[in-house]
């Protein structure tokens, strides 16, 4: 019987520029971390997409489930004061943006 011989899965994140947050690009198969990094480079960084790459074993990611949607995200909907648009921004700060 054929056993599953696929390499482990890795999630790939890339940083589009200096100081920018890392973004999820996709995933690759690789036997270990160094090869995951190289495969990520060859799969997702061929067109000048970024300046840094992270690879993380997919099984190390803990994810919320669809059932968590309510408890996790609903409370945000009725607390508009959590959004900053009600505060007037001083002109000097605006200019510096």
């Amino acid at each position: 019987m054929k056993t599953n011989q696929e390499w482990p899965l890795w999630e790939v994140f890339y940083q589009p520029g200096n100081g920018k947050p890392f973004e999820h690009a996709g995933s690759v198969h690789a036997p270990d971390a160094e090869m995951a990094l190289q495969n990520a480079r060859d799969t997702y960084a061929r067109r000048n997409e970024g300046i840094a790459i992270w690879v993380v074993p997919s099984d190390q990611i803990t994810a919320s489930t669809p059932e968590d949607v309510g408890p996790f995200f609903d409370p945000a909907n009725d607390k508009a004061y959590r959004h900053p648009q009600f505060y007037s921004v001083p002109r000097a700060v605006k200019k510096r943006k």
């Binding site: 390499w7 690759v28 198969h29 495969n39 060859d42 799969t43 061929r46």
Partner: peptide, 11 residues
């Protein structure tokens, strides 16, 4: 031998 390596060799 693998999709990823296929891409790497082509690169």
């Amino acid at each position: 031998p693998e999709l990823e390596e296929d891409l790497a060799l082509a690169n």
